[in-house]
Lab assay of single mutants.
Amino acid sequence: MFKRLMMVALLVIAPLSAATAADQTNPYKLMDEAAQKTFDRLKNEQPQIRANPDYLRTIVDQELLPYVQVKYAGALVLGQYYKSATPAQREAYFAAFREYLKQAYGQALAMYHGQTYQIAPEQPLGDKTIVPIRVTIIDPNGRPPVRLDFQWRKNSQTGNWQAYDMIAEGVSMITTKQNEWGTLLRTKGIDGLTAQLKSISQQKITLEEKK
């Protein structure tokens, strides 16, 4: 169930391209415009997507990853294993993690069937560096609404905000991946996880038929 919630949630996290980005210092504006741009692209490019579902990787690479804190999220997933990894191991892992996100997020976007969304009203940021933004996803086919909290983090150097995690039903996506990959990290280390991520990233994206 959580895996499905995570995939549905990713439908609204794909941010804007650099040329049309919203105010990078306001995570609420980023979330709002990102959702609108993403849904528009999914709707307008269905012919290309249906002809070649792996085209979704391109959308992810162009529109999402430049505005997601990939390395920060990847380091959180590694936890204690990050500090013990060599620079070469980290570089290989982050490259594999990025390719994994292209496949995983692309597969999530393949679930698009006309969903709509509501974003919580903007709250004062103050001096906060981590801000959760509640998004409610509404399914046109009558499924119950899904309420999610996207975690946005302020870059201490640039002042810009980027998304790095999502919490559904009190469970963090980062925590879920830590639990899912924990045994592999304990037995085969970061190299074993890197190899698995490379394998997963090679899987073809498949479209979910409308139910």
Rank of each mutant, 00 (worst) to 15 (best):
M166D: 01
F2S: 03
L185N: 09
I167L: 05
E169V: 00
D191T: 08
A120K: 12
G74A: 05
V8D: 02
V12Y: 10
Y82C: 05
R147C: 01
D127M: 09
Q69E: 01
R134G: 04
T175W: 11
R90A: 04
S172Q: 05
S199L: 12
K188I: 11
Q46W: 03
Y28Q: 08
P27S: 06
G142L: 10
G106V: 08
V60I: 15
W161Q: 00
T176E: 01
A195E: 14
F39Q: 01
T206Y: 10
R186N: 05
S199G: 13
P144C: 02
Q46I: 11
A51V: 09
N44Y: 08
A163V: 02
L65Q: 12
R134Y: 01
L5F: 12
P132F: 11
F2W: 09
S199K: 13
K154F: 04
R98D: 08
I59W: 01
I49S: 11
M166L: 10
V131I: 09
G74V: 01
R4M: 15
N52D: 11
K37V: 10
T86V: 08
Y100D: 13
L65P: 02
K188R: 10
I190E: 04
I133M: 03
I119H: 11
R90K: 15
K71Y: 05
M111S: 03
A120C: 06
T194M: 07
W181I: 07
D61R: 04
N26M: 09
E99T: 13
I167G: 04
P140N: 09
T187L: 14
R98M: 10
T187N: 06
A34E: 05
G192Y: 13
M111W: 05
E63N: 04
L193I: 02
Y28V: 06
D32M: 10
P27V: 12
D54H: 08
K3E: 08
M31Y: 03
I13M: 15
M1C: 02
S156I: 02
D23M: 09
F94R: 12
P144S: 06
Y81W: 08
K198A: 02
Y28I: 06
L78M: 12
A19E: 03
L10P: 01
K29D: 15
L193K: 14
D165M: 06
I137W: 07
I137Q: 03
A19N: 01
Y55C: 08
R50M: 10
G182V: 02
Q118I: 13
Q46N: 09
P132G: 08
V171G: 00
P132Q: 05
K43E: 07
Q162R: 11
N179I: 03
V77L: 04
L10G: 01
Q202W: 14
N52K: 14
D149F: 00
G106M: 04
V8C: 15
E180N: 02
T175G: 04
K71D: 02
T116Q: 15
A18M: 14
K177E: 08
E122Q: 11
Q151S: 05
I174E: 06
R57Q: 14
G182A: 02
A195V: 14
M7G: 02
Y81E: 05
D54L: 10
R4E: 11
R98V: 06
A9W: 13
H113Y: 12
L185T: 14
Q80C: 03
K128C: 08
R186G: 04
N141C: 05
R90L: 05
Q157C: 06
S17A: 13
F39T: 02
K3I: 07
K204T: 13
L193Q: 15
Q89N: 07
F39L: 03
P53W: 04
R153S: 11
W181V: 11
Q69R: 02
L193M: 04
P53E: 13
Y72A: 01
I13N: 01
Q115H: 02
Q80H: 10
Q69T: 15
G79C: 05
R50A: 08
P53V: 08
L30W: 10
A22W: 09
A19C: 08
P132H: 11
R143C: 02
V68Q: 15
A73K: 03
K29W: 12
P121C: 05
D61I: 04
L109M: 07
L42G: 06
K177W: 12
I130M: 04
T136C: 07
L109C: 06
A163E: 02
M1V: 03
D61C: 09
V68R: 00
G182C: 04
S156F: 03
N26Q: 10
L76Y: 03
N155E: 00
A14F: 14
D32Q: 10
W161V: 11
Q151M: 06
R186H: 02
G114K: 08
T206R: 11
W161C: 00
A88P: 14
L64M: 05
Q80G: 07
Q196C: 08
K29E: 15
Q157S: 10
M7H: 01
E63Y: 02
D191N: 07
P15R: 05
A104T: 05
Q48K: 10
I49N: 05
A14N: 13
G192I: 12
N52H: 12
G114C: 06
Y93L: 05
A14Y: 15
A108I: 00
K37H: 10
I119A: 00
K210W: 13
A14M: 10
N26S: 08
T58Q: 08
L207Y: 14
D127F: 14
S156N: 03
I119F: 08
D23N: 09
A21M: 10
K211S: 13
T58A: 09
P121Y: 09
E208P: 14
L65V: 11
K71S: 07
I133H: 11
Y117A: 01
T25S: 09
A35G: 10
Q36A: 10
Y112S: 00
N179G: 05
W161F: 02
S156E: 04
V135D: 02
G142Q: 11
I59F: 02
V131Q: 03
E208Y: 13
K102L: 13
F150Q: 04
P87S: 11
Q62P: 04
Q46Y: 08
E209A: 14
T194L: 07
Q115K: 01
P27G: 05
L30R: 14
W181M: 15
P66V: 04
L64Q: 03
P27R: 02
T175A: 00
Q24C: 12
T194N: 13
K211W: 09
A14K: 08
M31D: 01
I133W: 08
L78F: 03
Y28W: 08
Q103V: 15
G106Q: 05
K210H: 12
P15G: 12
W152Y: 04
A168Q: 07
W161G: 05
A95T: 12
K210A: 13
A92E: 15
S172C: 00
I167S: 06
R143S: 11
I190A: 00
E122M: 14
T175E: 09
T25K: 08
P66H: 07
Q123M: 08
T20A: 14
A195L: 13
G142W: 08
V12N: 02
K198M: 10
T136D: 04
M166V: 04
N160V: 09
E122G: 06
A14G: 09
I13A: 04
D191F: 08
L5S: 03
I133Q: 01
Y67M: 03
A163K: 15
Y55K: 13
F39W: 02
Y72G: 00
L101Q: 14
K102Y: 15
I119L: 07
T194Q: 10
E33H: 03
G189K: 03
S201W: 15
P53R: 10
L101N: 14
W161H: 02
D23V: 09
Y105Q: 02
Q80D: 01
E91D: 15
A14R: 02
D139L: 15
S172I: 02
K188H: 06
Q69G: 12
T176S: 00
Q178F: 04
P66E: 10
I138S: 09
A19G: 08
Q107S: 09
L42N: 06
A73W: 01
E33C: 08
G170Q: 11
T183I: 09
K102Q: 11
A73Y: 02
W152D: 00
T194H: 10
G192C: 15
L11Q: 02
K154G: 07
W181P: 15
Q24S: 13
E122A: 02
F150G: 08
P27D: 01
A19R: 02
L11C: 04
A88V: 13
T116Y: 15
F97G: 02
N179C: 01
V70P: 15
